[in-house]
Design a protein around this nucleic acid. Structure first.
Lengths: 205, 205
DNA sequence: TGTACATCAGTGAACGCGCGTTCACTGATGTAC
DNA sequence: TGTACATCAGTGAACGCGCGTTCACTGATGTAC
């Protein structure tokens, strides 16, 4: 039973780890297959024992990211308990927590240009993960009076957009901008105000 | 008076144009100085007559972007007339319009990794442009009861984040996701709900 | 108006580099007897 | 337990490529007389 492989031990996972580290440090385009191999202490050619090529390696990193992300989101959602509102807020926090804790994965998923459609497994993983957010939004939207209830997909798109925007603009130092507020606070208050606008939180607080 | 230059005509601007086109088509990392030169019908070495190098060319593209962006935002803001609310909404629309109309500039500004700090002129241009959004937010926040008024910077950060998120996730087809709604509608409704949450728009509509 | 000259935008060849990918190979490992 | 063998993970050399940057140059342009 080859639990630890022949020579290296577990090159496949080591390569994914190097990929994540490099992508986190240098951005999706600063990443090179050769450097990932070097990081793992291996010849570039060895990579081809495990991956079809550069893109395939990034796709695997993204795939693993969506799996982790989906788990975190589902755990936060927790079947919609104790309430649709609290479950929804928890998924918002989980989004940001994921971006903070797994920046390499985040970049591989959302900034690398890897298409979700590139293989069915990746697609399934991504769909599941993003589905949790939509589910939480759908649950919560039941509490909005039907006449001024936006489609749940729109609802979740708003929240996703704000979350992604906070991550990109303020949770990284990228454009030389320093965040005026802690990103977590920014997102928390932003979502809070938005939900108040939907009548889901009492206006007076 | 060398209005049109010696040989090429106006190589400097032609190179910026090529840079924008390539950056729009291939992303910030797909852009190469050599290809921009080729596009402009010129040897790579010729670029060095006008720019210090690759990064400098991208920075110039970003700089021009911030200038255009700033103009659009100021025009939309229009001194806060006819009302703080309408001026604010107009800046939100202008943001998205800019991203749509000048995608190359947008990418150079927000996705290329070029720091705003790299030279004072760029910094000034960016600060002015982003300052308009903050000004519009500050004006508008005067209409919120002081006891539940968030800091204007936070307010404008929320709007910026949602706008940027909508652009990145839904106004481009990048992650293989197709937008469930037109980005403009998404942003309009999102900002509307947010402002209702601040008590700036009547809740019943 | 015509000629001589200075300028300097763009050339073309060359550089060293790291990239992604291929290929025949080798030698450590696991397995069968 | 010991030996012979098959497997296949990783090697190392090689490929062609496009990149960013440098340099001495050339020749079209604008200018002075």
């Amino acid at each position: 039973m080859p639990k630890r492989g022949y020579h290296h031990g577990n090159l496949r996972e080591a390569l994914v780890a190097s990929c994540l580290k490099l992508i986190e440090e240098k951005g999706p385009t600063g990443f090179s297959l050769s450097e990932a191999a070097r990081e793992a202490g291996v010849t570039p050619a060895a990579v081809y024992r495990h991956f079809a090529g550069r893109e395939d390696l990034i796709a695997e990193a993204a795939h693993q990211g969506y799996d982790i992300f989906g788990d975190l989101m589902e755990h936060a959602y927790d079947g919609g308990n104790p309430s649709a509102l609290s479950a929804f807020l928890a998924t918002g926090r989980a989004y940001l927590a994921f971006a903070n804790k797994f920046p390499g994965h985040y970049v591989a998923m959302f900034e690398s240009g890897i298409s979700i459609q590139r293989n069915p497994a990746l697609n399934a993983s991504a769909t599941r993960a993003l589905g949790v957010l939509e589910k939480a939004a759908t649950d919560l939207s039941q509490h909005i009076p039907a006449d001024r209830r936006p489609p749940p997909q729109m609802f979740s798109a708003h929240i996703w957009a704000m979350s992604h925007g906070v991550v990109e603009l303020f949770a990284r130092g990228s454009p030389g901008t320093k965040s005026p507020f802690p990103p977590a606070d920014l997102l928390e208050t932003g979502i809070g105000i938005y939900l108040r606008g939907l009548g889901l939180i009492p206006p007076d607080r």
